[in-house]
Nucleic acid binder design. Sequence first.
DNA 1: CAGTGGTCTAGACCACTGC
DNA 2: CAGTGGTCTAGACCACTGA
Lengths: 273, 273
Amino acid sequence: MPEPKYQRIADDLLLQIDQGALRPGDRLPSEPELSEAYAASRNTVRLAIASLMNRGLVVPRQGLGTFVAEEIIPYTVRLSAEQGSQEGSQGGAYVSAVKMAGRNPEILRFVVEVQHAADDVAERLDIPAGESVVVRHAERLIDGQPWSMLTSYYPMDIASGTPLERAGHIAHGAIRLLAELGHEQISYRDEITARMPDLTEYNFFHLPGGVPIIAVDRTAYDAQRPIRFTRHIYPADRNRMAYDLGTLPDRYAGLPKQPPRPPGRPGSTQRAS
Amino acid sequence: MPEPKYQRIADDLLLQIDQGALRPGDRLPSEPELSEAYAASRNTVRLAIASLMNRGLVVPRQGLGTFVAEEIIPYTVRLSAEQGSQEGSQGGAYVSAVKMAGRNPEILRFVVEVQHAADDVAERLDIPAGESVVVRHAERLIDGQPWSMLTSYYPMDIASGTPLERAGHIAHGAIRLLAELGHEQISYRDEITARMPDLTEYNFFHLPGGVPIIAVDRTAYDAQRPIRFTRHIYPADRNRMAYDLGTLPDRYAGLPKQPPRPPGRPGSTQRAS
DNA sequence: CAGTGGTCTAGACCACTGC
DNA sequence: CAGTGGTCTAGACCACTGA
């Protein structure tokens, strides 16, 4: 048997989804129905469905059935700073950007603490591993939905004795505060990776199966040294990151309202089995 | 039973991996062994292992056993252009950048064709959907390993009658050629998303389970309009994207040689179940 | 209530690996 | 060859949902 039976079933369902016979929101045939239709045991049918779940194509709902995943309109996060208005982190920049997009931002579970720097944090801040750092953690919502988690790390010698090491919001944003402290942010490096979520992320974002997260690690510098390291975690199904480099022609400078369909390799909609 | 048995087994194995009792490359106990140890059926054990596979933590090898996934040192892709040396695509920029990192670049399956623009491509190029576009597709290797796939789309009126619509490499890179054609690239927008791989990507990259791909969609502009749209696909387990914005202090300007451990939420190594 | 997916068992045969 | 994971069956009981 060159093609396992469960894969044939999965391919068949996939085809129906791709061709539109099953549209987003539609219910799949129940497991007993599929079992009958393909002359397979229920376990085999479940294997097929599991492979679709792992790719985020279908979502099971207890007592109801299994449904083709709905398409989500991604929110575009602009990560390149316009001149003069550097992008903040916990600060007002996020709130105003989201409001401008006609959506409602909230901030949850704001936590401030002192930790020993892990290897990756220490390397970015150019301090010895294990050194104390001030950590500010926040969880953001948009329109009541969990949208991103972020954690900022400040070198102790910069944050110590400032509002940064105390809980609560920073009046005009952390970047402004850092500048007043003599550490004007003049550059940053972003490092972007993607992976499957860990348990915390999975729970916070209510992620369905088959949805990775995008991690944006931003190291901010003043003229001499790193002044802050921030890790943003975004669920990949409802976010996309954007960088504008150079000056775009005026009419293309805005962000698209209605983003086109999510990227795939055009001309082949087939998914991995 | 608040905790299903298969999840308890998965959590237990996860703990052993996190705590180092099982290190990368180690073989897990065989399924019959686990079945015995946890007083569970083999199917239940397999359920537990499947959940670890879906997160890319373990890799099964037929006839040998199931092994803890090896760590991979990611290659850092610098996506921000330095002034004066705009980043190319199929061109020499990639080859020289990789060589500079002491690795061996190759290009596979170079394909050039004319297609009708899909919605997303048409929107980026600001042309009507279905319009003809010149498509150039390439697959890249580094050190013999599949590393990225890229597809560039050119508006017909720009590429027509030029080397762009013919197969083969462009002498000094496509950007230089575009400039000579009167379309100097002065800016671009990158849009970054992540998702699970489709079948083509899965096969080309030899992806283990639980590894997403990163898609970088770059729209390049001259002073007036979009002149090219490029979609890069990178496997997320061996690549990270980097943007430098502003001028970094000299000693921090280079890319890190030995990247630190992959990002997670520091202080909690637990993964989703 | 009947129907759905979630969990679990106890078997079976196969293909592949290293010895 | 014996041991591994890959596939598959035919049952069972449960928790959850909507009517």
